[in-house]
């Protein structure tokens, strides 16, 4: 085991004004760019969240999940969750959004990231319940599954920057894109990626690490340019 020191290149979160968020079409590949449509989608989401928080607008919640529900269910099923359980989880998330919409701040995070975190944590909760672990404290998973909207200082990007990220992913080298895609979309371990791509494990780690570093520094530069 080696201990290496790496330079910290992470920037602080910029304050966002205009918002954009991912709203790609299913099956769409790399090379997406920011569009008026996605900017509009983010504003629309923020408006729905506002309506839920202020007016307890159930129609807004239903509209949100008509869009996000199938994506979240698809993500969960890709993780190996059965269809019924996936819907149970999406239901829990929907109720959380309903009761916590007042905590959502579009200047700090996109709704997509918020709902992703909640779904992921609920999935961890699911793994615990179906694993061997004892429940020492029933409150535990309430905590793990309870996701606050992240604070601005911990949030590298806000909504307007997610399209920039997509653009930057499209600019990675083909091997880097493949490694990132297998890790982030197919949830493959580094070892599985190595075997699938046919390269040594160390190469996969290097590709992923360098891809993330490139994304980070390019993102920081682009955001700086925008400012």
């Amino acid at each position: 085991m080696t201990l290496s020191i790496v330079e910290d290149k992470i920037s602080k979160s910029p304050q966002a004004e205009g918002k954009s968020m991912p709203s790609p079409k299913p099956g769409q590949n790399f090379g997406r760019t920011a569009s008026k449509k996605s900017v509009g989608a983010a504003r629309r989401d923020a408006q729905w969240l506002h309506n839920i928080a202020e007016r307890k607008d159930a129609k807004a919640l239903s509209d949100l999940f008509e869009i996000y529900g199938p994506k979240l269910k698809g993500w969960l099923m890709a993780r190996g969750v059965g269809a019924d359980t996936a819907e149970d989880i999406v239901q829990d998330i929907m109720i959380k959004v309903w009761t916590k919409a007042h905590k959502f701040d579009p200047s700090k995070a996109s709704f997509a990231t918020w709902v992703y975190r909640m779904t992921r944590n609920r999935w961890i909760d699911y793994k615990r319940k179906h694993g061997r672990m004892d429940v020492r404290d029933p409150e535990l998973m309430k905590v793990i599954a309870d996701d606050e909207v992240p604070s601005a200082e911990h949030n590298f990007m806000s909504q307007e920057n997610s399209d920039i990220l997509k653009k930057q992913i499209a600019r990675l080298s083909a091997p880097q894109q493949t490694a990132i895609r297998l890790a982030y979309m197919e949830f493959k371990t580094h070892k599985e990626i190595a075997s699938e791509v046919g390269v040594p494990l160390g190469t996969v780690k290097t590709r992923i690490r360098s891809a993330i570093q490139v994304l980070k520094s390019n993102m920081a530069r682009e955001i700086e340019n925008i400012r």
Partner: peptide
């Protein structure tokens, strides 16, 4: 954020 952007796909 990267994971979220892939959620769209």
């Amino acid at each position: 954020e990267i994971a979220t952007s892939f959620l769209g796909e």
